[in-house]
Design a protein around this nucleic acid. Structure first.
Length: 379
DNA sequence: TTCTTATTTCCTGCTT
DNA sequence: TAAGCAGGAAATAAGA
């Protein structure tokens, strides 16, 4: 393996093919799995859309080897780097291993052209997630510190600043799926001062809005999505409620988040509309199952406790929930919500209870596709 | 258009 | 005390 070098400039498609032999993210029915030869031709849009920059939504510390490969592939493409000198042995590390590398180590491994580029990109991803993982009090404190600093400089306070150009623009940007927000591209050029009323209601409530209007995404370890402003909702759909302490906060409306506009929807939703039946992997239990039956793609997220009995355990529950949220284009998914959906499967006997064991579930008689016999038979 | 399904969200109470 | 579990209630998107 270590002697195997990439013979030509890497593309996302052939990288994915090399590593897994199957399309990324949403596994296919074994019986209808396209062959490796036909896959690239028959499912180019699907493959590229579904695998495209998935890693961007995941904390680099949670990246699997595949995410790392995807990330490297993107940079190879964007820098027009000649990948013929790149050994695949260096592309098999996962996120935690990658995060431990220094800039010099990256240059040593990836060369003076690609190395610094990758290092900078990694730092940006890490910074983004470190900011997102700040707790609400931490964000409040940071905002206050910055406020006093800006106040001394006669700058407008953060609580009165909105990033963007107009109400309309803000509304639209909140409704868009935010794949591409990036702290490094943030400038203060397009600021707008809010009226007192506005700042009092929506934007000055720093406990509800991320700094600079960025999402205050829950960290992987946080349990609740309540403090997390949902991008998918326009502000008007939120309900202002009073908490026990008398402070007002925005409350997400119940139910499934509104569907994203067509231009932002992924191909899986498009294809599910065309097809009479939802594609394999659409349901939560299938998503979970597919993580379990492709351990090489999801190292450390879940594990079998008893493969024959279908007993499994979440190892990184919030990370799995975030992945599910990404799949469903719902940035506020948490393990708490995911587990509620899991519990509904008990009634349908897709899952069975495992009493007394946290994070442990068992596939029920109405689930399929996880048994060793089924898999070896290609069912 | 209505109904059904599969979640998603919020909540309270309990257990570990 | 925090995290996880259990399950009711209400809501929504999407398919039938």
């Amino acid at each position: 393996m270590s002697s195997l070098c990439l013979s030509s400039v890497l593309t996302r498609a052939n990288l994915t093919m090399y590593q897994t032999g199957i399309p990324d993210v949403v596994p296919q029915q074994p019986s209808v799995l396209p062959s490796i030869n036909t896959l690239q031709i028959s499912t180019p849009v699907y493959s590229s859309n579904m695998s495209s920059q998935w890693y961007r939504h995941i904390n680099p510390h949670y990246w699997t080897a595949e995410h790392v490969l995807e990330w490297i592939s993107d940079h190879v493409e964007s820098t027009k780097f000649d990948a013929s000198t790149l050994s695949l042995a260096y592309c098999t590390m996962d996120g935690p291993a990658l995060c431990q590398m220094s800039r010099d180590q990256m240059i040593g491994v990836f060369g003076s052209q690609l190395g610094p580029h990758l290092h900078q990109s990694l730092q940006e991803h890490k910074t983004k997630y470190e900011l997102q993982s700040l707790s609400v009090p931490e964000l409040d404190e940071t905002c206050q510190l910055l406020d006093s600093f800006l106040d001394n400089l006669n700058f407008p306070l953060l609580s009165t600043i909105r990033i963007g150009q107009s109400e309309e623009a803000v509304s639209k940007s909140e409704f868009d799926y935010r794949d591409d927000y990036d702290l490094t591209s943030l400038t203060m050029g397009d600021t707008e001062y809010l009226s007192d009323n506005q700042s009092d209601s929506e934007y000055s409530s720093s406990s509800n809005s991320g700094m600079f209007g960025f999402p205050n995404l829950d960290s992987p370890e946080s349990g609740s999505g309540e403090s997390d402003p949902e991008f998918s909702y326009p502000p008007i759909s939120k309900v202002n409620i009073k908490t026990e302490k008398g402070e007002s906060r925005l409350k997400r409306p119940r139910g499934r988040p509104p569907k994203l506009s067509r231009e932002h929807s992924s191909s899986i939703y498009d294809s599910s509309k065309k097809n009479k039946h939802a594609p394999r992997g659409t349901h939560l239990w299938e998503f979970i199952r597919d993580i379990l039956i492709h351990p090489e793609k999801n190292q450390g997220l879940m594990k079998w406790e008893d493969r024959r009995e279908g007993v499994f355990k979440f190892l990184k529950s919030e990370a799995v929930a975030q992945m599910w949220g990404q799949k469903k284009k719902n940035s506020s998914m948490t393990y708490e919500k995911l587990s509620r959906a899991m519990r509904y499967y008990y009634k349908r006997e897709i899952l069975e209870r495992v009493d007394g064991r946290r994070l442990v579930y068992k596939f029920g008689k109405n689930s399929s596709g996880w048994k060793i016999e089924e898999m070896s038979m290609g069912i």
